[in-house]
Amino acid sequence: RGFLEKAAVKKMAKAIMADPNKADEVYKKWADKGYTLTQMSNFLKSKTAGKYDRVYNGYVIHLD
């Protein structure tokens, strides 16, 4: 289950990176699912340092 969630989160993160207008909708879905910042950090780990920082930081702001 965790692997599928991670894959889904990364897919949506890539969608945000391609079209930032989708961010609020995606952040709301993640918040509704109760994803914590720790979970998001783990889901968005990448071999490329900083690749998903913008998405993660946007989610931090959304939760605030």
Score class of each variant (00 low, 15 high):
R1H: 14
R1M: 13
R1G: 15
R1L: 14
G2N: 13
G2I: 12
G2A: 13
G2Y: 15
F3A: 13
F3M: 10
F3W: 15
F3K: 14
L4T: 12
L4Q: 13
L4I: 10
L4R: 15
L4W: 14
L4E: 11
L4H: 12
E5M: 07
E5Y: 06
E5H: 07
E5N: 08
E5C: 12
E5S: 06
K6P: 05
K6T: 10
K6E: 08
K6F: 09
K6L: 09
A7I: 14
A7Q: 13
A7P: 04
A7T: 09
A8Y: 12
A8M: 13
A8V: 10
A8D: 07
V9G: 01
V9Q: 01
V9I: 10
V9L: 04
V9A: 04
K11W: 07
K11L: 11
K11R: 14
K11I: 09
M12L: 09
M12A: 11
M12Q: 15
M12G: 07
M12P: 01
A13G: 02
A13F: 03
A13R: 02
K14C: 12
K14A: 12
A15G: 05
A15S: 10
I16M: 05
I16P: 00
I16N: 01
I16K: 00
I16G: 01
M17S: 04
M17Q: 05
M17Y: 04
M17I: 12
M17T: 04
A18R: 12
A18G: 06
A18E: 13
A18N: 11
A18H: 11
A18C: 15
D19R: 04
D19F: 06
D19C: 14
D19T: 04
P20K: 05
P20N: 06
P20R: 05
P20H: 09
P20D: 05
N21R: 13
N21I: 08
N21Y: 09
K22I: 15
K22R: 10
K22L: 14
A23E: 04
A23G: 06
A23L: 03
A23Y: 02
D24A: 13
E25H: 07
E25S: 09
E25G: 08
E25D: 10
E25W: 10
E25Q: 09
V26I: 14
Y27E: 00
K28C: 08
K28M: 08
K28W: 04
K28Y: 04
K28I: 07
K28P: 03
K28D: 05
K28N: 08
K28S: 10
K29S: 13
K29Q: 14
K29R: 12
W30H: 00
W30M: 02
W30R: 00
W30C: 03
A31G: 04
A31C: 15
A31P: 00
A31T: 06
A31N: 06
D32I: 09
D32F: 08
D32V: 09
D32S: 11
K33H: 09
K33W: 14
K33S: 11
K33G: 04
G34I: 03
G34S: 04
G34D: 03
G34N: 06
Y35D: 00
Y35I: 06
Y35V: 04
Y35T: 01
T36R: 03
T36N: 06
T36Y: 02
T36W: 03
L37A: 09
L37M: 06
L37G: 04
T38E: 14
T38S: 11
T38G: 10
Q39E: 12
Q39S: 04
Q39R: 05
Q39H: 07
Q39C: 08
M40D: 00
M40S: 00
M40V: 11
M40P: 00
M40A: 03
M40K: 00
S41Y: 13
S41R: 14
N42K: 12
N42Q: 13
N42L: 11
F43E: 02
L44H: 00
L44F: 04
K45Q: 12
S46P: 05
S46G: 08
S46V: 07
S46A: 06
K47P: 09
K47H: 09
T48S: 10
T48L: 07
T48H: 10
T48R: 10
T48G: 06
T48W: 09
A49C: 13
A49M: 11
G50Q: 05
G50N: 09
G50E: 05
K51L: 12
K51S: 05
K51V: 08
K51G: 05
K51A: 08
Y52T: 02
Y52R: 01
Y52S: 02
Y52Q: 02
D53P: 01
D53I: 05
D53W: 08
R54Q: 14
R54T: 14
R54A: 15
R54L: 13
R54V: 14
R54D: 15
V55P: 02
V55K: 01
V55W: 02
Y56N: 01
Y56F: 13
Y56S: 01
Y56Q: 03
Y56D: 01
Y56V: 07
N57V: 09
N57H: 11
N57I: 11
G58A: 04
G58R: 02
G58M: 04
G58K: 01
Y59H: 01
Y59W: 03
Y59E: 01
Y59F: 05
Y59C: 02
V60S: 08
V60D: 03
V60A: 14
I61C: 14
I61T: 11
I61W: 09
I61V: 11
I61D: 13
H62N: 02
H62Y: 15
H62R: 02
H62T: 03
L63G: 02
L63H: 03
D64G: 15
D64M: 15
D64S: 15
